[in-house]
């Protein structure tokens, strides 16, 4: 079957308003609305999105430092933990919310026509706004109390955040489309994120995962979540920490910390995985999109 549509010439304000511009406008309106709605009706409002990672931080810090006696050796552990938790909370909440962004908007999908990916984009962007505010707060507060250790590597941070957002978007697209057909995914994804939380050295130092073995450290670093978190930690909190011995990048431009751990070629693996997840997410979404309306 074929469906063709071309915009009419001379249909009012549509002239000059490209489809893309209209769609971006809708993304923005939906994202802002969701952000607003999330925090209206609760007394503390936005503070909750700050409290939750702070609580997790407090608990894990107490457990690892006082119970397991790890992390005390590093002067950066507290802030590294906080940064990692904020990054991971974004990953977890953005994917979980975006997963139901299509299935939860059935009324709109059944009654109005627009690219469905707008819903996923808006949902993840709304979580991204929260994340950016939290991240800024940490950097400001961390710098104020003199705990930030910013080096040349910190300039790479925006790139890692872009990588994280791409990963979130890739997962969100795939999950939101599949969730329309398989509601079990909600539970499965909860388990997967728990595994990622403990498997990606979020709540403990990366060294604890590797036990000093170089190979173990390299394998764990293939996981893009671990790579992004460890990279941001070493860009923002321990930016001046020297690269491990055996890596000689000279005094050239800043190099991602994990590239020094994994080696330049192997470092492409987590990056390619992110690209693959994005490609897979887009493919799944495109494939299932035409069937959303009749399954909601």
């Amino acid at each position: 079957m074929t469906v063709t549509a071309r915009p009419a010439v001379g249909s009012g304000a549509v002239i000059g308003t490209t489809a893309l511009r209209r769609h971006l406008n809708l993304v923005r309106e939906l994202a802002i609305t969701q952000f607003k709605l999330k925090y209206t009706g609760s007394v503390l409002g936005y503070l909750w999105s700050l409290f939750k990672p702070m609580m997790l931080f407090g608990i894990t810090y107490a457990i690892f430092v006082y119970l397991f006696n790890v992390g005390r050796t590093s002067p950066h552990f507290a802030l590294q933990l906080l940064v990692a938790i904020v990054l991971f909370t974004f990953f977890q909440e953005a994917t979980a919310t975006a997963m139901s962004s299509v299935a939860g908007t059935g009324h709109l999908i059944r009654k109005a026509h627009f690219p469905r990916s707008i819903l996923v984009l808006a949902s993840s962007l709304s979580a991204f706004i929260t994340f950016l505010i939290n991240m800024t707060l940490i950097i400001v507060v961390g710098s104020a109390i003199g705990q930030m250790d910013l080096g040349l590597r910190s300039l790479l941070t925006p790139l890692f955040i872009v990588e994280l957002y791409a990963l979130v978007l890739g997962f969100s697209l795939g999950l939101s489309a599949l969730f329309v057909f398989y509601r079990d995914l909600g539970h499965i994804w909860e388990i997967v994120t728990q595994l990622l939380l403990y498997g990606s050295a979020v709540v403990y130092p990366y060294s604890l995962l590797t036990h000093g073995h170089r190979l173990l450290g390299q394998i764990a670093g293939l996981n893009p979540v671990a790579q992004i978190i460890e990279d941001v930690r070493h860009a923002l909190v321990a930016g001046n920490l020297p690269y491990p011995p055996g890596v000689n990048y000279g005094s050239g431009p800043a190099v991602p910390w994990m590239a020094s751990i994994l080696g330049a070629a192997t470092y492409l693996v987590p990056l390619s995985l992110v690209a693959a997840i994005v490609a897979l997410g887009v493919t799944i979404f495109r494939r299932l999109e035409p069937r959303f309306a009749e399954n909601l």
Binding site: M1, T4, R6, A8, S11, L108, A112
Partner: peptide
């Protein structure tokens, strides 16, 4: 016609900008 459902057969061509709404108060 609104391209919310994709038909299994036939062809549809539309000349013009179609209002994306079918009902009032959607969204």
């Amino acid at each position: 016609l609104a391209r919310i459902y994709r038909p299994e057969g036939g062809s549809l061509s539309i000349d013009g900008f179609v209002s994306p709404f079918l009902e009032l108060g959607v969204g």
